[in-house]
Design a protein around this nucleic acid. Structure first.
Length: 648
DNA sequence: AGCACGCCGACT
DNA sequence: GTCGGCGTGCTC
């Protein structure tokens, strides 16, 4: 009789021990009973010291003769579990779809054809050589800092070919796969075989095919979003993380891991190189490059065009059309579309208006379940909460009962409406409300590319990785609301967004232009929007150092929630006391109501911890979790967010 | 997470 | 009297 530890996709703990008459290899899938249920998990290891007091049950079915998940893979899962303070089962659940890994192995034939050859230019070649030389030396991390359109992808394609020629596989990660169906085609054409992609918007069948083909090793290269790092490969030789600065790499749900960091960790475990690439690197990666932890490579210029001209419009001096369009932006749009060229506009709010209020008493209309103002959608004539999706049919003032309600704060719908009136042209509106499916998105992007619309207006979606040759003007309606969020990365985010947006304008042979509307034109940030200039990084680093922010200090945010106000508050102070008792060099913030105090009728308190040492942070988090385990047995929920990116 | 147990209010 | 609400606790 042998004993085996099995990881099961259940949120608590997740490691259970079972018995078997047969010898079982680590990393195979096994179906076991748990309570009244039957679940399929992964065999983690043999347990040589079982607890006498527990009556173990038998493994019902073993699915594989050879391991699907390597010991390096299991190592990664366990390290994530430890670092992000989530049960192994919770990690497994959050990282691979149960539907996919429990499915029959269905591989698909990968078609091979004659690849399209391209020669690298001098700048590309120098980066290529820099990385190539360390390709066979095991683990190394490379930060490739190259402006938009500098041809980073071509370098990675050539490196990938070398790795594949050695019989190993390549993983190419992008932050938002749904926006880049073009990349799949481009990679396939250049590699000379079908590069399959793996992401949540694919049909289950397609996902299973990509999963099992990558697992079998018949698929040499896979393109994917966050979750594809956890597709078990036969043998990975290189991981590429494109647009490494993107905050969508940080998962908000438990386990809230940072994919970029996990890629580097996996590379370390596998002893292979990892490439991080961006036109606007994160401060974390920048710091690692400066310290020599990452090898730094830069491509300083766009090979084909000049950088766009950037214009800052002071909204204090303007009387904008419809409260939205300044005269300089209006003129710029007018000139651009008159030349038959196209415009991309960014608005970072969806709906028609983000706030409704009572005209009688000034009270803001909040969602009844959450402490958030409801968003008004004119297209469907509804008011919806962005946090719990609850609809309010006919909003009335909860304070005075009046139904004389009006709105302010323009979203994509309002902007599109104003633009349509101003230019008498149909506008393409792109936001999550409007784009429900992958197919629809592709169609919309295609129609814009074909010139059916002169202007595309949308949320952050429009700034991410889109590439249209005829776009020569990019505008941002209101950058200022980025600074209203409680987020120490606001500056960094604004900088990245503006430079990325600038990269959307004038990528082919035409000179691009960027117009930024702001009421704070004096912000230093606007003077640093030259991608050849790295003073932004130095200034931001100095600020982070002064206030003990990452990358200098490590951060963790603990959020507690409960249906009763008193219960969360008590729990928060209980945790706070524990943290004070255990802390050394760390800074522990006084417990505070979360910026959104109530979500789905649960009240929320937050505590932020900062420490120069990751080890101290781990110790404190553990102490906090233990205190609650011992003292709070009610429906209190704890969320531990390590290296947080979202602070609401 | 499921799933069951268990203890209180409002129905035939 | 029982149906069903969800708060609590456990699963090798």
């Amino acid at each position: 009789m042998k004993y085996y530890d099995v990881i099961l996709p259940v949120p608590t703990g997740g490691i259970y021990t079972y018995t078997s008459e047969d010898e079982i290899q680590n990393g195979v899938r096994a179906t076991v009973p748990l309570g009244r249920r039957t679940l399929t998990g992964i065999v983690l290891r043999e347990n040589t010291a079982p607890d006498e007091s527990i009556k173990y049950r038998n493994i019902s079915t073993v699915h594989d003769t050879n391991p699907i998940f390597s010991c390096e893979y299991m190592d990664l899962i366990m390290k994530i579990s430890e670092y992000y303070c989530a049960g192994a089962g919770q990690v497994l659940k959050g990282v691979i779809s149960e539907q996919v890994y429990t499915s029959e192995k269905t591989t698909v034939e990968i078609k091979h054809f004659e690849p399209k050859e391209l020669t690298l230019n001098e700048a590309q070649l120098s980066v290529y050589n820099g990385i190539y030389s360390s390709l066979k030396d095991g683990f190394s991390t490379h930060l490739v800092h190259g402006v938009t359109g500098s041809g980073k992808t071509e370098i990675f394609i050539e490196l990938a070919k070398k790795v594949i020629a050695e019989g190993k596989q390549v993983l190419y990660l992008v932050p938002e796969i749904s926006l880049t169906p073009q990349l799949e085609n481009r990679l396939s054409a250049r590699m000379g075989f079908d590069v399959l992609s793996y992401h949540s918007k694919k049909t289950p069948k397609k996902r299973k095919e990509a999963f099992w083909s990558f697992s079998a090793g018949t698929l040499p290269m896979m393109l994917g979003a966050r979750s594809s790092l956890f597709v078990p490969a036969k043998e990975i030789g290189l991981i590429i993380v494109d647009e490494e600065h993107e905050s969508s790499y940080k998962q908000d749900e438990i386990p809230s891991y940072q994919l970029r960091d996990m890629s580097v960790l996996y590379g370390k475990i596998l002893k292979i190189p990892v490439i991080l690439a961006s036109a606007t690197p994160s401060l974390e990666s920048w710091a690692n490059a400066k310290s020599g932890k990452y090898l730094y490579h830069s491509i300083p210029c766009r090979p084909d065009t000049d950088m766009p001209e950037i214009q800052i419009v002071d909204m204090k001096e303007e009387e904008p059309i419809g409260g939205i369009l300044s005269i300089p932006l209006y003129d710029a749009i007018y000139e651009t579309i008159n030349r038959g060229e196209q415009v991309i506009l960014l608005i970072n709010r969806k709906g028609y208006s983000h706030t409704l209020y009572c005209r009688k008493c000034g009270n803001i209309i909040n969602c009844s379940n959450c402490s958030v103002a409801v968003t008004y959608y004119k297209s469907t004539n509804t008011c919806k909460c962005n946090y719990c999706s609850q609809e309010v049919r006919r909003p009335k003032c909860l304070h005075c009962g009046s139904d004389d309600i009006t709105d302010y704060g323009a979203g994509t719908e309002k902007v599109a409406e104003v633009l349509e009136t101003a230019f008498e042209k149909k506008i393409l509106r792109l936001d999550t409300e409007n784009v429900k499916s992958y197919k629809k998105l592709s169609e919309m992007l295609k129609s814009f590319e074909d010139g059916e619309y002169p202007i595309m207006a949308g949320t952050q979606l429009v700034a991410k990785g889109l590439d249209f040759g005829n776009v020569t003007l990019a505008g941002i309606i209101n950058i200022d609301n980025m600074f209203t969020l409680p987020d120490f990365r606001a500056n960094e985010r604004a900088y990245q967004l503006l430079l990325q947006l600038a990269g959307r304008a004038g990528r082919a042979d035409k000179k691009g232009r960027v117009v930024i509307q702001t009421a704070m034109p004096e912000l230093d940030l606007f003077k640093r929007l030259d991608c050849l200039d790295t003073t932004f990084y130095e200034m931001e680093m100095a600020r982070r150092k002064l206030f003990n922010y990452p990358p200098f200090y490590k951060m963790c945010r603990i959020t507690l929630s409960h249906t009763k106000e008193e219960a969360v508050k008590d729990a928060a102070f209980l945790v706070y006391d524990t943290l004070l008792r255990f802390k050394n060099d760390a800074e522990v913030f006084y417990p505070a109501q979360a910026p959104i105090y109530k979500i789905q009728n649960r009240f929320r308190y937050g505590i932020i911890i900062k420490s120069p040492l990751n080890s101290e942070l781990s110790k404190l988090i553990r102490a906090a979790a233990n205190t609650l385990k011992d003292n709070a047995k009610t429906t209190l929920r704890i969320k531990i967010d390590r290296d947080p990116h979202f602070f609401m």
